[in-house]
């Protein structure tokens, strides 16, 4: 919820954002009408997966960067 408000504020001021969140937060994020959301199928508190899974962490961030530049409208949601 807090990060959703930050994303909306940043976007209104012209700063592009991408939110990386776990899937259980999907409904909560959807009702905040965020511009770009990348969902991971991980437990709350483990957004980028298990500790020390560096290749997965890298993959998530690369996908987030791509989503930041490829999304052309508000409400774009992708899964990884």
């Amino acid at each position: 919820m807090s990060v959703g408000h930050i994303a909306r504020g940043f976007e209104e001021s012209g700063i592009s954002t991408v939110v990386i969140a776990v899937e259980p937060f999907l409904k909560r994020l959807e009702i905040m009408s965020l511009p770009r959301t990348l969902l991971t199928d991980n437990l709350i508190g483990r957004v980028l997966g298990s500790p020390h899974d560096t290749s997965y962490q890298r993959k998530v961030l690369e996908k987030a960067v791509k989503l930041l530049s490829s999304a052309d409208k508000n409400g774009t949601v992708e899964h990884i």
Partner: peptide, 27 residues
């Protein structure tokens, strides 16, 4: 466990917005 966590967050009763914001990333 994911399904349990998702079920608990399925009906949020907090802030809701009908309109979104979007700053194009042009760089």
């Amino acid at each position: 466990v994911l399904e349990g966590q998702a079920a608990a967050h399925a009906h949020p009763d907090t802030f809701s917005y009908s309109e979104g914001t979007f700053a194009p990333f042009t760089v």
